[in-house]
Design a protein around this nucleic acid. Structure first.
Length: 420
RNA sequence: GUGAGCGUAGCUCAACUGGCAGAGCACUGGGUUGUGGUCCCAGCGGUUGGGGGUUCAAGUCCCCUCGCUCACCCCA
């Protein structure tokens, strides 16, 4: 085997692709109920979009980007996440200058150069949603509730919603001082990785999976206890709406996000059906990002991104529907053209139809039909062509009925329906 | 970037302390006229991931390399 999909990429083959289509179509359907509209941004952007948006110091920009110079000398990057391109488009098309709340969602591939493992690929796919232009906690709650509604309709296995607030410029700086000071006193008890986090991004110490760190983490001050009164109120109101709308969640003071732009509300939805990479979806409020990316004034915003590979992993197996309704078999070459003609008519009457194309025997054609999972077979032979009456066979029980060329589609539909 | 495990037929896997590469499933043909699935018969299918070494002899032992998987890390 010589050519293979590149490391960290994979083909989504039938029938798995049915599940992907279901995830996507249900997202479109449900997000529309919240007034969301789709945006399609380019797969690659000027690298500055991610340096300014994702953050120059972030792990993603530092070591995970598919970054290249094109033939014209432009510094470009395959998008590692969806939010910065959407913000860029939001600004480029002057949406920030109106007062309306803008709700956008996107579906598409993202790229990060990481070691592949369960639920983690170098090309992966996200569905994300962003709401710009309001700091009403109702919008935070609405976006979260929408995500939960969607996952519930998809039947994903026990999604768990975690919520926290990471504060903003009013309360975060003084909290960070306390946190760093506290971490410093326990420095020798922390793992090497957490000591590094302490230097680069102290909040992420809370994310450590190293058991040695857990004891220290328990003793560190949490931001939720140091929120300003207005940020505490914002969080309480988000939680209040969620409770009103029947969304179960857990307040998790240790929840932090990897991206630096989050302010106030952060949330994550996990599922036990996954491995170590158990976050199905994550997001939060990112007031300030619009301005940081060049907006004359800021537009507050809140959104999330979900990983499709992970959602599909967490979905239940469902019995797959047959890919066709009918299979046409022809007894010999003399009736081949008549058979193909019948197939053409069926398709134009809305019956999904296929046939065998290797010129094999009737028996072999029947085997192919059986393998195709087509629920019905139309048999075309010299007698049928002469009389204009064809035989429809229902594969589940072998029952056969005769039908004229004009009533064939209708009779197939009847047979399919009576099967239940 | 770090660590561990694993690479044998299309798939799932066998092959004792080194001794003729196998099975099941799948696939192809047949079991007498124009009917699939179950059953029976026959058949196709392999540089044992690749390269080197040790040996009379390597799927098996050693070295290198490539790939896959899981975890760390990162995050969706």
């Amino acid at each position: 085997m010589n050519l293979r999909a590149a490391r960290g990429t994979r083909d989504v083959m039938p029938p798995e692709v049915d599940r992907w289509q279901r995830v996507e179509s249900l997202a479109r359907q449900i997000f529309a109920l919240y007034g969301m509209q789709e945006i399609r941004t380019p797969i690659f952007e000027d690298s500055k979009v991610f340096e300014k948006g994702t953050g120059e110091q972030s792990e993603i920009v530092q070591k995970e980007m598919y970054r290249f110079t094109d033939l014209g000398g432009h510094d470009l990057t395959l998008r590692p996440e969806g939010t910065p391109p959407v913000v860029r488009a939001y600004l480029e098309h002057r949406l920030a200058e109106g007062k309306d709340v803008t709700k956008l969602y996107y579906i598409g591939p993202m790229f990060r150069y990481e070691r592949p493992q369960k639920g983690r690929y170098r090309q992966f796919h996200q569905i994300g949603a962003e709401a710009f232009g309001s700091e009403d906690p109702a919008v935070d709650a609405e976006v979260i509730e929408m995500a939960m509604f969607w996952l519930k309709e998809l039947g994903v296995e026990s999604p768990t919603l975690l919520i926290n607030s990471v504060g903003d410029q009013d309360d975060r700086p003084s909290y960070m001082e306390k946190l760093v000071a506290a971490q410093r006193t326990y420095l020798s008890d922390l793992s090497e990785d957490s000591r590094r986090r302490h230097e680069i991004n102290p909040l992420r110490v809370f994310d450590s999976k190293d058991p040695r760190d857990h004891a220290v983490i328990e003793k560190l001050p949490t931001i939720i206890d140091h929120l300003s009164s207005s940020n505490r109120d914002h969080l309480d109101r988000v939680c209040g709406y969620l409770s009103d709308w029947g969304v179960k969640f857990r307040l998790e003071p240790h929840l932090v996000r990897g991206l630096d732009y989050y302010r106030r509300t952060v949330f994550e939805i996990t599922s036990p059906a996954l491995g170590a990479q158990d976050a199905l979806l994550g997001g939060g409020r990112y007031d300030g990002l619009v301005q940081q990316m060049g907006g004359k004034v800021d537009a507050p915003a809140v959104g999330f991104a979900s990983g499709l590979e992970r959602i599909v992993l967490a979905m239940p197996d469902e019995s797959l529907a047959p890919p066709v309704d009918c299979f046409v078999v022809t007894i010999d070459d003399s009736v081949r053209a008549a058979g193909l003609n019948l197939m053409w008519r069926l398709r134009h009457s809305g019956i999904r139809t296929t046939a065998e194309y290797q010129g094999r025997s009737l028996k072999a054609q029947m085997k192919v039909a059986n393998r195709s999972a087509a629920p019905t077979v139309v048999i075309v032979g010299p007698d049928e062509v002469a009389s204009g009456t064809f035989t429809i066979k229902r594969m589940s029980d072998g029952q056969q009925v005769s039908s004229g060329a004009d009533s064939l589609a209708e009779d197939i539909r009847t047979l399919l329906a009576s099967e239940g």
